[in-house]
Nucleic acid binder design. Sequence first.
DNA 1: CATGAATGAGCCTTCATTCAT
DNA 2: GATGAATGAAGGCTCATTCAT
Lengths: 199, 199, 199, 199
Amino acid sequence: MSDTKEKILLKALLYFTENDYEGASLNNIAKSIGITKGGIYHYFQSKDELFHDCLVYMLDGLERISMEMVKPDSTLEEFVYGLFSFDELFAVLAAMFQIDLLNDYFNFLYLMSVGIKKFPDLKIRVAGIYQAIGNETEDILRAFKSRGNIKDDLDCTILSLQLSSMIEGAMLIAGLNKSVEIKTAGTEMAESILKMIKK
Amino acid sequence: MSDTKEKILLKALLYFTENDYEGASLNNIAKSIGITKGGIYHYFQSKDELFHDCLVYMLDGLERISMEMVKPDSTLEEFVYGLFSFDELFAVLAAMFQIDLLNDYFNFLYLMSVGIKKFPDLKIRVAGIYQAIGNETEDILRAFKSRGNIKDDLDCTILSLQLSSMIEGAMLIAGLNKSVEIKTAGTEMAESILKMIKK
Amino acid sequence: MSDTKEKILLKALLYFTENDYEGASLNNIAKSIGITKGGIYHYFQSKDELFHDCLVYMLDGLERISMEMVKPDSTLEEFVYGLFSFDELFAVLAAMFQIDLLNDYFNFLYLMSVGIKKFPDLKIRVAGIYQAIGNETEDILRAFKSRGNIKDDLDCTILSLQLSSMIEGAMLIAGLNKSVEIKTAGTEMAESILKMIKK
Amino acid sequence: MSDTKEKILLKALLYFTENDYEGASLNNIAKSIGITKGGIYHYFQSKDELFHDCLVYMLDGLERISMEMVKPDSTLEEFVYGLFSFDELFAVLAAMFQIDLLNDYFNFLYLMSVGIKKFPDLKIRVAGIYQAIGNETEDILRAFKSRGNIKDDLDCTILSLQLSSMIEGAMLIAGLNKSVEIKTAGTEMAESILKMIKK
DNA sequence: CATGAATGAGCCTTCATTCAT
DNA sequence: GATGAATGAAGGCTCATTCAT
């Protein structure tokens, strides 16, 4: 991929995240990377296409990161603490997309939501990623359960959904309610979950 | 409040939710309630003010609903199931704001996020509501705990945050990933939580 | 019709005629009548609509004039000379649309051609006008023929088409080839025709 | 002339005819012949020059055809029928320029009109062609007249202009009013003219 | 020869805003 | 209270043109 093209994608992603689709103007995006508006049209046929490609670019990275975070660890403790190490996640995302998602997690999600409505292929893609992460989590949990680490009466499918929800929700609430400190909250939640599910 | 003014607020809220701040034009809002654009300026000094007042209007309703949902019930079961009866929540919100939030929950949250960035008073207000709900939940949990319904080693503060996160996260995921059916998911999650926290 | 609206129509018609659809910019049209581009959108929803309405406005006038020119006269001579009095026709059109069609007859016709391709309703309208004029001419010729003024072996339907073609063609050629003086050419052609068709 | 250059001219002519000067973009022209926009600038210094050269290219062909159509035939009948065989004319033009002028005769003429306004040399050229055709026609008619084939009281100069006008006008009307079938109309008009001018 | 990157001006359109009525 | 006319800025997009390669 051309250097300029990647610069456009990255900067556009930032502007879209910060100002949403309508609020981000090609003028600003172009100016901020030192080219003209017309230059963008050399690489993308329309604002819509630029938006779409930004989201795909983002999803590619996101999928990689997510799947890495949901890797089987040697112990249940390690696994759960890993899931809730929000600060690490945000650090990786920041390095990847140059976006401070701690404060813009909403916008990030909203962007996906807008994209899903605009582009059917993204809908499928996003659902697929959620599915994959959910399934992977479920499998890992089931493995721990079969090893006797998790209470017998807990359904791993539901548990997986609960964990995902809690993670998304916590990041979201931390964005809206600044009195919640995301890093310590993550650790404490992990600790609490372990108490609840460990046999 | 004047009848016309409330009509404007309600319709504007719908348009803002469906199209976000930039995407909602005074023209469309005005046309859809049968007045002219200029007429809106009788009641609001600017689009920004209209937006702000919309959000306040929404927050007022939201606060009332939330506080009602987090009422102490006779049993822990009833309380938890109540928290996770998403369909009821959405029904109430739909009746109140004429918005289908099941599909637009994102937009709804995003709107708040945009508002918070634009208007500092809303930031305080939102944090306050979350705080209040959190505190109320915490108190109720603590009461159940003191009655011996909840495991001794669980911290009610953390538990409260976990429940809030799970609720927000579940509604959010259901919006993005349509393969998750929000109603049954809610029931199952409630059931699972009870298994985890009940003594 | 609002005064401003008619001013826009008239000036737009001029610009469209002189520069064709693509070449006429709303900017120039607006500026030349002392309003802003946005002001045009108060009266017309799009450049396309403005164009369409211009053509309808023009066709309305054209139809009136044409039908007046093809009125039965007392003698065949008067009738034919009337048809070929191009200078009168151009004077009326100039007064009506403030366009010098003597030099822009092409553009005028071309404009119609573009309009016909863009708007199906105009296609029907234009064909209808030609038809009406043709039929009227035919009827008048037939009347003269039955009174013994026109040679028996001439077909009035064909004759009508020949006259129309000659008129259109002459105006067109005069526009392209400036060595043809339209007024005297008209008179001479009328004279020649009379020699050819009179019994 | 380079092969590529002629390909550009031919395709540009088509685009100019179909979309007029403003509507034809170098981008489309270039793409349709499989080169880049920049490539066109190797052969032509500007869009204006390309346009000018297209028109000259077209006029060259047109002059040749026209002069061939206005050749003295053995009989007056053959000559007149030849002039009005529109279908043959269109067939030759189609083969020459790959343009269906039956439906685009207008655009074709309009293009000339635009060109004449833009480039003074074309104005002279076009007038010259019309003149030449007119003179040639006139000479031929005069020859027939001296042979006693045409009525004595008809002026061959005027007659020539009438024929040219009728031909241009008929092709033009057929373009605007699709209910006129150009081929049969041509034959019938020729027949009628013969009745009118034959001694 | 020809490409591809990039520019800058201009276009149509939308929109928040103002204001006389 | 409310309308309707009008503005001016901005936005997305197209396009002729230039130029290094």
